[in-house]
Design a protein around this nucleic acid. Structure first.
Length: 243
DNA sequence: GCGACAG
DNA sequence: ATCTTGTCGC
């Protein structure tokens, strides 16, 4: 359904007309209504990190989506995929998913089997319409998903976040708990964790903490970021003269 | 009108 | 998001 909306703006990759933005926001309300905010996931053996890379210097305006699947508990990569597509539209605050999800879905489709859990670079329900990219992706794929963002979109912490590693505080927006801040590492800016789909906030925090390895970003996110960057540089590299 | 604003 | 190596500090 949202795929038809994308078609409206696909021809340009420039800013969609205002009337289309209204439709995209309505679409988010429908997706958000389908998001499951409780645990509805099986045994977690394969965790997928998801990320997208792009460059403002790219005249083709491509988005490069990468998925890296890590085995639990070894956290060793067992599968990876990357897909590059023309950006359907520019980045617009609150509408990130419409820019990035199509390429991510294509990358997920290349995996030999679907992962048990998605860690997405961005917000879940911590979004003005409770439909950040983690929720959007989770609902359209019906896979359990967690939002791991590096900065804030909406919401306020219940109290100042402690300095100690592991410190956590809930974040609320318009009277609703939508996520949490997590001090994943000492002296580092906190992670913004929110549930995406079929995962509770507690379970989301559990899996983020379980995959940190003492660093700021969880391993699935780190690996996907690295892979997406490699995919972009490979696609943008000058033509090789290897014969 | 002003300020905020994932990637 | 991206441009980018070394460097300072726990």
């Amino acid at each position: 359904m949202f795929r038809k909306l994308l078609h409206l703006v696909r021809m340009t990759s420039r800013a969609p007309p205002r009337s289309d933005l209204v439709k995209l926001r309505r679409c988010q309300l429908e997706l958000a209504a389908r998001a499951v905010r409780q645990d509805a996931l099986g045994e977690v053996r394969r965790i997928a990190g998801v990320d997208v890379s792009s460059s403002r210097f790219d005249p083709a305006r491509m988005v490069h989506a990468a998925v890296v699947v890590l085995a639990w508990p070894s956290l060793e990569p067992v599968a990876r995929a990357a897909v590059s597509l023309p950006a359907p539209m520019p980045y617009i605050t609150g509408l990130l998913a419409f820019r990035e999800v199509p390429a991510i879905e294509a990358a997920l489709a290349q995996l030999p089997e679907p992962p048990d859990l998605l860690m997405v670079d961005g917000q879940g329900i911590a979004h003005p319409r409770r439909c950040g990219i983690a929720t959007h992706l989770g609902v359209v794929t019906d896979l359990p998903s967690i939002g791991v963002a590096k900065s804030r979109l909406v919401g306020q912490p219940a109290s100042p976040l402690g300095e100690a590693p592991g410190a956590m505080v809930e974040v609320s927006d318009r009277g609703e708990v939508v996520g949490a801040l997590l001090r994943s590492r000492a002296r580092a800016n906190p992670l913004h964790i929110s549930l995406g789909h079929r995962v509770s906030l507690d379970t989301a925090l559990h899996w983020v903490r379980a995959t940190l390895r003492g660093r700021r970003l969880p391993e699935p996110t780190r690996a996907a970021h690295e892979w997406a960057g490699q995919a972009r540089r490979a696609a943008m590299a000058p033509p090789s003269d290897a014969q």
